[in-house]
Write a protein that binds this DNA or RNA. Structure first.
Length: 125
DNA sequence: ATTCTAACA
DNA sequence: TGTTAGGA
């Protein structure tokens, strides 16, 4: 399939698909005319990359993580770095969760103090 | 119509 | 990351 199709099917922009390839995360075949030719396997990997990207992982982290997920057999060479990397990610997420909870209570506080008679008539639709 | 590379403001 | 130029 061409880049446009896989883009729609995995939710990664064409721009990002080319970027990830340059980073070595995806290696689609090329047609005679130089167009990228993605396989179903590439699509599945792209979907995994999508999830990792959504999870906030860097290309670096994905490089360590993907090999461990792809191969059915323990290719645990990169998994040492992987463990450290994932622990670091969890730490960062914990920090962000803490920060967000502070923001949340802050806003909930404002909401609680908000007068009840501030509603304005809605415009017609 | 679609994609390719490279580079821009 | 978007966008654009200039080709294929």
């Amino acid at each position: 399939m061409q880049i446009g199709e896989i883009s729609q099917r995995c939710g990664i922009t064409v721009r990002m698909l080319r970027f990830y390839e340059a980073e070595g995360l995806l290696q689609p075949h090329r047609t005679g005319s130089g167009y990228r030719d993605y396989s179903e396997a590439d699509l599945e990997e792209a979907k995994r990359i999508k999830q990792l990207a959504d999870a906030g992982l860097t290309v670096e982290a994905m490089h360590d993580l993907l090999p461990c997920i792809i191969s059915p057999k323990p290719t645990f060479h990169p998994c040492d770095r992987l463990r450290a990397r994932l622990e670091g990610e969890v730490a960062k997420l914990d920090q962000r969760l803490a920060d967000m909870e502070r923001s949340r209570s802050q806003i909930v506080g404002y909401l609680a103090d908000l007068p009840v008679d501030t509603l304005v008539p809605m415009s017609q639709d």
